[in-house]
Design a protein around this nucleic acid. Structure first.
Length: 588
DNA sequence: GCCGTTTTCGGCCCGACTGTTTTCAGTCG
């Protein structure tokens, strides 16, 4: 059964949506939503646990009831309650929840009083103002709905981290130039380094004007909505402003909150989230007889921490939790015990082990690639051009590879005082798990990044076999972008990562977090599972030309979300340790 | 529906803004 987790997460999500529209118990809805999230985050396929209610209920956030439903699904492929719930609503109704500004109450109203059963029905009715007759709806609300539907159609999906981060940095820079702005920062899922971002959250600290308390904040939001890329203003209050910005392909919503410098830390914490992390922190505050909101941590209505995030965490009895770990996946317990990992940072990376030159589809000569890597402060660069099957990427034939190795050795010798240049290859893992070059040739290389490039839609069982077989080739050093996915574009393979990771652990080789913002493959959850199994990670940019090394930050954020320290990452090893590790992965 | 170093019952986070209202419900994050 492929992707039991994905299917189950979707089922619980749908049940929650239906219950919302039916005004079901709020806490039951929450429980279903939480179950969906927890299941989606699980590294192991639930199908591999099997329909064992007791075993499933051990998972945090999943109780007996949900476990029984999961077991039922694993047994029969269905959850009866899901079908029963769905039968109570027109099929097209839950989808309306995705429209911004349209919630369960209004959807129920539209359905019961206007006979609307789908998005198409709603669009048809919105061509006139007849819906304004309904209680609670007016012409303005209808106009906003029209806009939201249009927005949902043009943007549709979340934007990639690599699209959102540069825009956010630019916006923060603009905000800092406004007079009176003390601090400006981006928050939200972007700060947590998630692979895709729903909207950009910005926080600004503004020194209040004693005579006109609201005026200072007003000046920021006035300047903000006038920024050139802003296309729509959704909300404009004294402390909260929301706009839409048109991107190249996607529109994105940007929310701005203005606070005083005294509240900046509490606000940054609050708006960085995640929602689940915040809920857990607030519960912790309550347990300690305190309250936490976006302005401060308070005891007896007196603020006791608010200026910095560090202050708030400290007063809650926690060590500082980096944004990338704030997902309520156990980080709060670790912070209570002062056992949080010291996360890997960008400057810890000292080597690039996956990069291309103009011998295949890159835009650098070997020498330029090496010098660029040296400029970044790397002690080692591996040249890993494509193998022969990648004809479209000008992959190297056996003969060309032999010549290429010579050329790399020559540059390596020339630059040996500057940087260590390794001869490698990004070798295709063919559909059956064999490699694209014979072992006699792989033996001549310093390292082999084995990657899947084609046949990415094969069955999970086949994909698992394929990767495991490749890993057992004695010359493979790193598995590059193991699933081959492209975010928002291609799903890639869905192998049983547990088996792939176990094979990598047995062989002592590394799995890649490809830092290219289209890939981020391994993702955070699988990288976490790799770390837990003692597998080393390789964070590589897969650079093809100038500027590509700047993608490294996306790989770092993904690794941080997995809880990686520099001890988990081969690219953070000192030169001698790295060379030693590379040798240890292959036959003597 | 989940959960428990005060609980197996009775809790379950908090505030801003909008549009529609005569004081607030709905939505969002």
């Amino acid at each position: 059964m492929p992707n039991a987790n994905k299917q189950l997460a979707a089922l619980f999500e749908q049940m929650a949506a239906v219950l919302e529209i039916l005004s079901g118990d709020r806490f039951r809805i929450n429980a279903f939503q939480r179950a969906a999230r927890v299941i989606d985050d699980l590294p192991d396929d639930l199908a591999s646990i099997g329909p064992d209610v007791k075993e499933i209920a051990k998972i945090e956030g999943i109780g007996k009831g949900t476990a029984q439903r999961i077991a039922q699904f694993l047994d029969t492929g269905k959850i009866k309650e899901h079908a029963d719930l769905l039968a109570k609503l027109p099929k097209g109704l839950p989808a309306l929840l995705d429209i911004s500004g349209l919630g369960p109450k209004t959807i129920a109203l539209l359905w019961k009083q206007a006979g609307i059963e789908s998005l198409d029905d709603l669009k048809a009715k919105l061509r006139t103002d007849e819906l304004a007759q309904l209680p609670g709806l007016g012409t303005k609300k209808l106009e906003n709905l029209r806009k939201s539907i249009k927005f949902a159609q043009t943007s549709g999906q979340r934007v990639r981290l690599g699209q959102a981060l540069p825009l956010a940095l630019w916006l923060v820079d603009q905000l800092r130039q406004i007079q009176g702005v003390k601090h400006a920062a981006y928050a939200g899922s972007l700060r947590r380094g998630k692979e895709t971002i729903g909207d950009i959250d910005l926080i600004v600290a503004m020194q209040p004007n004693p005579k006109h308390p609201d005026k200072a904040a007003q000046a920021v939001s006035d300047a903000f909505v006038k920024l050139e890329p802003v296309t729509d203003v959704l909300v404009k209050g004294p402390t909260k402003t929301s706009v839409r910005i048109a991107g190249d392909k996607h529109a994105i919503q940007v929310d701005l909150r203005v606070v005083t410098p005294d509240s900046f830390g509490a606000a940054l914490l609050y708006f960085t989230g995640s929602k689940e992390h915040n809920v857990a922190l607030r519960q912790l505050a309550i347990d300690q007889g305190a309250r936490l909101n976006e302005y401060s941590l308070q005891k007896n209505d007196r603020p006791i921490a608010s200026r910095t995030e560090q202050d708030v965490y400290k007063k809650l009895g926690l060590t500082y939790i980096p944004p990338t770990l704030r997902e309520d996946r156990g980080e709060i317990t670790l912070a209570q015990k002062d056992q949080l990992p010291t996360l890997i940072e960008l400057p810890d990376i000292k080597a690039e082990l996956h990069a291309h030159t103009d011998a295949s589809d890159g835009r650098w000569s070997i020498r330029d690639l090496a010098l660029t890597a040296a400029e970044r402060g790397f002690h080692t660069i591996a040249v890993t051009d494509h193998s022969r099957s990648q004809a479209i990427a000008n992959g190297l034939s056996n003969n060309r590879l032999e010549q290429h190795v010579q050329a790399i050795r020559s540059v390596a010798d020339e630059l040996k005082q500057t940087i260590t240049v390794l001869a490698g290859s990004e070798v295709d893992i063919l559909a059956d798990g064999s490699l694209d070059y014979p072992n006699a040739l792989l033996k001549e290389l310093d390292l082999v990044v084995a990657s899947p490039h084609s046949g990415l839609s094969q069955e999970p069982a086949k994909a698992t076999k394929r990767l495991v077989k490749a890993i057992h080739n004695p010359y493979v050093t790193i598995v590059g972008h193991p699933t081959g996915r492209l975010i928002n574009r291609r799903q890639g393979m869905s192998p049983d990562m547990k088996q792939v990771i176990a094979a990598a652990a047995e062989r002592g080789i590394a799995l890649e977090i490809n830092a290219n913002n289209w890939r981020l493959d391994l993702n955070d959850v699988n990288a976490r599972a790799a770390i837990d199994a003692g597998v080393m990670l390789a964070i590589d940019t897969d650079a093809h030309g100038p500027g590509d090394f700047d993608q490294l930050i996306y790989g770092i954020l993904t690794a941080q979300r997995a809880g990686a320290t520099k001890d988990n990452v081969v690219n953070a090893m000192p030169r001698t340790a790295l060379v030693k590790w590379l040798k240890a992965t292959r036959p003597a």
